[in-house]
């Protein structure tokens, strides 16, 4: 059952490329977890400022939102590596090994294609915001290219991990859908 026992993770064998990608995804996962912790602390700080000190809270809400978005997008590749993106494996489970491999190849290629499309347009969107100097319409007025950067970076890392997974599948290092 792919993706649910905490021990499951992408197999790398001794392939240096796969190991490098796994390491990159893990670092991205650390960043993602750190951002979630930062969001917890900032929210608590905001409550203290408002409730205890009766002060203004201008930037906190926005900062927390952007941290959470970045945590999600940067975490994608790590969660992919941990096989944490839930799927329905009823059909793959019931297929003979050969057909299962073909199906895994098709779904991997489709997944890589859609992520590549999002990466492309995500980069374009980020670039647009950067070029036009867009800011958020708040008192804080964050330059939007900063939070938008999480889109191309997050999907770029996810693409890298997906390509590594595909290579592992083709080389036989990883079983299709992680099924024995």
């Amino acid at each position: 059952m792919s993706g649910h026992s905490s021990a499951a993770a992408a197999q790398t064998g001794s392939n240096p490329f796969l190991r490098a990608v796994a390491a990159i995804s893990t670092v991205a996962g650390w960043c993602s977890a750190a951002m979630i912790v930062a969001a917890v602390l900032i929210t608590c700080q905001m409550i203290v400022i408002r409730y205890v000190l009766n002060g203004s809270t201008v930037w906190q809400t926005e900062a927390v939102i952007y941290l959470m978005i970045a945590a999600t997008l940067l975490g994608l590749s790590y969660v992919q590596r941990l096989r944490g993106h839930v799927n329905v494996d009823l059909i793959p489970l019931s297929l003979p090994a050969r057909v299962r491999f073909v199906l895994a190849t098709i779904t991997s290629v489709l997944t890589i294609a859609i992520v590549a499309v999002i990466l492309w347009y995500g980069y374009e969107y980020w670039h647009f915001a950067w070029e036009r100097g867009w800011r958020s319409d708040t008192v804080w007025g964050v330059k939007l290219w900063i939070p938008y950067l999480a889109i191309p970076v997050g999907f770029g890392l996810l693409l890298l991990q997906l390509v590594a997974d595909f290579i592992a599948l083709v080389l036989g290092i990883e079983k299709p859908f992680g099924l024995e």
Partner: peptide, 21 residues
Amino acid sequence: ELIPEILFGKLDNFALLSIPM
């Protein structure tokens, strides 16, 4: 072209913070 924008927009919500919390 709109997909990244919509993905970002859907996550652009303070209440979602409470899920990881």
